[in-house]
């Protein structure tokens, strides 16, 4: 009933038609989708310093509070500076730095392979005349990537707030990292010990105990995700240590 020629023509026309429909839909919707992703990133950065905003006003609130974006290299030098919608130094806008790629390059360099030197973004936020330094971190959980933003007080040692999020950790267990009880644990913790040595913040299974300055409670049942958060902080914040040391010496 249907000839081969008919079948081939039918299939070809169908495929071309579908391709056209899908690609135009993708092109039309892309600006909305990208705006969502960007707004989400902004929300994450601001929320770590306790500035909440909804998606629509994200860009405005960001401009209001973020006074400067910095990009620092692994030796602690400021390579790029972005202020008032324009680049003052360097050629990369710190906001656009892909942490995942930077971490991969960093890893490659540690293994002795050649890779472009990674840059690490720092967002300087001002709220009620207080200065906060916000750094993004990224790591792996149990099922996929986890990421977060850590806001430091002006000493770049005491954590003022932290937000985490995840792609698909187990609901009720690992997924708890983006709930406030877990995030709030980080407030007031410090990442340097009294000798000024970088110790990060440990995520301890079975409870960190009271008054532990460098540790928080892990999530029961979410051990692998908790360890992921620990490693993410350790490897992520480590890259900022040279910058922090340099910065504090100058003052």
């Amino acid at each position: 009933m249907f000839s081969n020629k008919y079948i081939f023509t039918y299939a070809s026309v169908m495929v071309i038609l579908v391709a056209a429909i899908l690609s135009s839909a993708s092109m039309l919707l892309k600006p909305y989708q990208e705006a969502n992703v960007k707004a989400e990133k902004i929300q994450g950065i601001l929320a770590s310093a306790n500035v909440t905003t909804d998606r629509e006003h994200a860009a405005n609130t960001y401009q209001q509070h973020i006074v400067e974006e910095l990009a620092v290299d692994s030796e602690g030098n400021v390579v790029s500076r972005y202020r008032n919608d324009s680049l003052i130094e360097g050629d990369v806008r710190p906001f656009d730095i892909d942490i995942k790629e930077a971490l991969m390059r960093n890893q490659a360099i540690k293994l002795g392979e050649s890779a472009e030197a990674p840059l690490w973004p720092v967002f300087v936020l001002e709220k009620d005349d207080e200065k906060y330094y916000i750094v993004p971190v990224r790591g792996v959980g149990l099922w996929g990537p986890i990421w977060g933003n850590i806001a430091f007080e002006s000493d770049f040692n005491t954590i003022a707030g932290a937000t985490f999020d995840h792609k698909g950790e187990t609901p009720g267990l690992g997924a708890e990292i983006n709930t406030s009880w877990f995030e709030d644990e980080f407030k007031g913790k410090t990442i340097f010990d009294e000798q000024g040595k970088f110790v990060s913040v440990n995520v301890v299974k079975g409870g960190a105990g009271e008054n532990a300055p460098h540790a928080v409670d892990a999530i029961s049942g979410g051990t692998i995700t908790s360890n992921g958060v620990k490693d993410m902080l350790l490897t992520g914040l480590d890259n900022y240590v040279p910058y922090i040391k340099k910065n504090n010496n100058n003052e």
Binding site: I21, L22, A25, L29, Y32, Q33, N36, E40, R55
Partner: peptide
């Protein structure tokens, strides 16, 4: 199509 629309409008 559904996925793209969700991503754009109910992120």
């Amino acid at each position: 199509l559904v996925d793209q629309v969700l991503k754009a409008f109910v992120y």
